[in-house]
Write a protein that binds this DNA or RNA. Structure first.
Lengths: 192, 192, 192, 192
DNA sequence: AATGAATGAGTGTTCATTCAT
DNA sequence: GATGAATGAACACTCATTCAT
């Protein structure tokens, strides 16, 4: 029975993720989500009181899943460079393996449908990453915004690389691209 | 007469840009746009046959304005590093000076409202930048995706920096942040 | 449950028939139909996806009801004249008993709102009548268009007589008028 | 100058007749009429204060033209049968020669757009015909509705024949069909 | 808890009509 | 008179949400 409930909720979430990514929030009706999930229109509202709550719950859960994926297997004892390389490759691999979730977060992170509260709540998951980066940079750099800058560059660049891999379909070269990207960032874009 | 026409069209575009950025496409009604622009509801449809065409026209024009802004004052005879530094600082300064336009493009670039045709048409403006980057990197790197990677990292990082400056309100430190960001990218994130 | 559904659909159809006949298709709004039918505006669209489909469904059903009415009680074994007299009187009586339906068909049969498909589909009901007329005339006349002519004269004249009865309010004389009309047609208009 | 005015008015009327017949009153916008007539949208309203007045004026004028056409060449001295035959053939020939006008009147004669006043005004043109028919029938028949019946049968049948000729494209057989139709009516439908 | 027909406020869009030029 | 951009009331239709079963 508990299984049953989870199933319906999950079915709704899955259908919503797929449809939102394909057609956007506005382009997706709750009726369509219900239909794709195989439940009645009323059922959706048993689990989520409004469409907006469905969107926010979905955002929160997907963001959580993605951040768990990213953290996996990072050895706290390893060198800073090793940890950063792992973080970089994790981020990209998680994105490539879950393109729907990845696009969903990228596309709707700044949507007005997502409330400030959800966004902030979701951000907490990233404290771990912030701490990781901070550790390394705090010695090496002095400007108070350097670390912030470094983090943003690191994070946004990883998103760019995921898109590059998915859109160009270069799944075979993936590991090479990941490493090359890391080198570009770590050693610098300067050609020489 | 021509002035008058331009004025109404411009007023609609301006109101639309502001409202879309604030509330999203769906959250903004054509009635609201008309009202803010100071024209009748029917007038909007004299200039744009549908809401979607208004959105796409707006996207196209804003993207054009932004890309013009980014290209300004780059000396083709300068060294590669100089040109890249200028490109970087232009991008960020254009973003900071036109935050509404900048956010609009960033937010809705992947919206289902924007048609493929608009996106592709708008992308043509970026050929110049691609050529600029290509020039420098083609000698220094060998992998065929390196340049693509470099471009994406460069471009997405600039967006991240604009957001950093706007959100933290550090307009005073802007030039310093721009240069520091460039150093991080150009010399590499590696702390040492 | 099934009863309920039929009721709402029927209520909408009834209200639509009345309003369309009174004010035409354009002069009748879907909101007005819904209101008169005692349902919400959205409900109408649960049964008919568009106003045009409502119009066409209504036309089709009314035409069907009318043709059923006309066919009733014609004895295939009777003489040709008897059958024609019955057909004539049926047509007029059906029209007089259902003036709204009769006017609706007469008024909107050539409206651009009615699609070709609906018109053709509705015409199939009249095959019976064509066969009946054909039977008698094929012996007596030789020109290949005579039967066509006879049918049209017969059919259009009946419409004229219905209007005459309704507009002049001579319901008492109806049977006499019907017979007199039949005589005029059958024996000829020639005064002597 | 007066010529000019007449031209614009006529151009609007012609365009309106064509468009209304093709697409109905509702399906035709005043903008479309103006465009087809080669005048500005505002110009139409210099000649006709509202769309409804345009429709009614058009109806009145077309009905007038048609009734003039029908009366032409009837010799008051001829026998009743000869006059009726001429009336019949005139009606059909006028309809076939001016199919647009003929359809317009047939289609919209009972439209709610046409005011009662227009309809009544237009009917006056038919007094001549009524008198003609009355003359002959008043001797031969006794029921007070007989003449009314005869007129309606006569009139509606002629409309049916015009449609038959136009739709089947039998312009070559026209005279034969006209005479055959008259015989059917005059001598009666009875096969023998 | 599950259903899905019913609801009605809200939206994009149309178009007859006006009026400044 | 002629023009056509501007107007805004009116409409068909949508869809998140409710609730009786």
């Amino acid at each position: 029975m508990d299984k049953q409930i989870k199933d319906k909720r999950t079915a709704i979430m899955d259908a919503a993720l797929k449809l939102f990514t394909e057609r956007g929030f506005h382009g997706t009706t709750t009726a369509q989500i219900s239909k794709d999930a195989g439940v009645a229109t009323g059922t959706l509202f048993n689990y989520f009181p409004t469409k907006e709550e469905l969107i926010n719950s979905l955002y929160f859960e997907v963001k959580g899943r993605l951040s768990s994926c990213i953290k996996k297997g990072i050895d706290p004892e390893a060198s800073f460079e090793t940890k950063m390389r792992k973080l970089w490759s994790n981020t990209i691999q998680c994105g490539v393996s879950n393109p729907e979730e990845f696009h969903f977060i990228g596309q709707f992170g700044s949507s007005p449908y997502i409330t400030k509260i959800t966004r902030e709540e979701a951000m907490k998951e990233y404290e771990f990453i912030r701490a990781l980066v901070e550790e390394g940079f705090s010695n090496g750099r002095n400007k108070d915004y350097s670390m912030e800058l470094a983090m943003m560059i690191f994070y946004h660049s990883s998103g760019a690389v995921v898109n590059l891999i998915i859109n160009s379909g270069r799944l075979d070269d993936m590991n090479e691209i990941i490493e090359e990207g890391f080198q570009l960032l770590w050693r610098g874009l300067s050609p020489e």
